[in-house]
Amino acid sequence: MTTAGMFSRLDGPVSFALPLRALAVLGLLLGLCCVLLIVSLMAGSYPLGALDVVATLTGRPPSEMAQTVVWQFRFPRTLAALAAGALLALSGAALQNVTRNPLADPSLVGVSQGAGLAVVAAIVVWPDLPQALRPLLAFGGALAVAALIQGIAMRRTGGATMRFILTGIGIAAFISALTSAFLTYGQIDRAVSALGWLAGSVHAAGWSEAGMLAGTLLCLVPALFAASRPMAAMRMGQDVAVGLGLKVGRTRAALITLSVALAASAVAMVGPLGFVGLVAPHIAHRLARSGVGLHLALSAAAGAALVGAADLVGRVAFAPVQIPAGLVTAILGVPIFVWLILRTQARPA
């Protein structure tokens, strides 16, 4: 690659080349996330000034209340929103690359539906279930359904991608129908409570959730970035990828497992927050062109910013009523996305 427009280091044991524009966009998105974090800490029923927030964060809270509001409620919640957005976006980006299908998102591997079914069934059938068990249930449900789809789709060779997509469609439809059945024929108040969870919401997130999400992000993301070069080879089609020395079957399985893990941990904490996984990678494509690795980073940042903003808006806009972040994500993300569609040529994964 030429070094014009590149940030590169070509000699020595560590060598790379990165496009400058994409790096700039990435910087902007990360900046946006920081701004969202600060604003989220300021806004709410107990408003704080920017200086108060900074003071609280640096250990000199202006009041007891500020200390509690920032550290107990707003900070972990915002962190959870940002991390969940990033995780779902990464999962979607990986899946779109692996399947070479721009419509792929975490619901294709059954993660959202599995988590949804597990929790909704629990809410409807066993309403006394402690809230604390929901993440566990969601995680289990997500993994179980994802494993079911993989197990059914992966057993034979050849035409793997198409079979994987179609199996995903079939199983997902089945699981969604079960969930709908619970919602439709369960008791109305429980159904509504379940509906709220299904929409994806971070309002219950505390430090344990935020810590868990941030931990997942830190553990799994390096793995995903390590996988970015195989992913790029994978996009060239099966025969070429084998020719380039890629273990195609194993790589596909590993990448899908990774995206399942990413999405499942996010869904476990905040519910099946839809749309980010589908749309964040496309937003990233349309903001700047880049190789696969940088595109992953851009997607993650875009997803984080989207969910962070959605949580902020959903919390503040109709206060004291809180609109689940999942819903605001769609309501907020769609206009942005449509604007991007109208501005730029399609540049599919």
């Binding site: 690659m1 030429t2 590169s8 070509l10 000699d11 044991p13 560590v14 060598s15 790379f16 080349a17 390590a226 070069r229 790029a232 080879a233 060239m236 070429v240 380039l244 020395g245 890629l246 690795g293």
Partner: peptide
């Protein structure tokens, strides 16, 4: 550049030799 895939590694993402 994809042709360089087998010569690259986690640390050697893109080297002079690849270019």
């Amino acid at each position: 550049a994809q042709g360089r895939f087998p010569h690259q590694s986690l640390l050697r993402q893109w080297s002079r030799r690849d270019a």
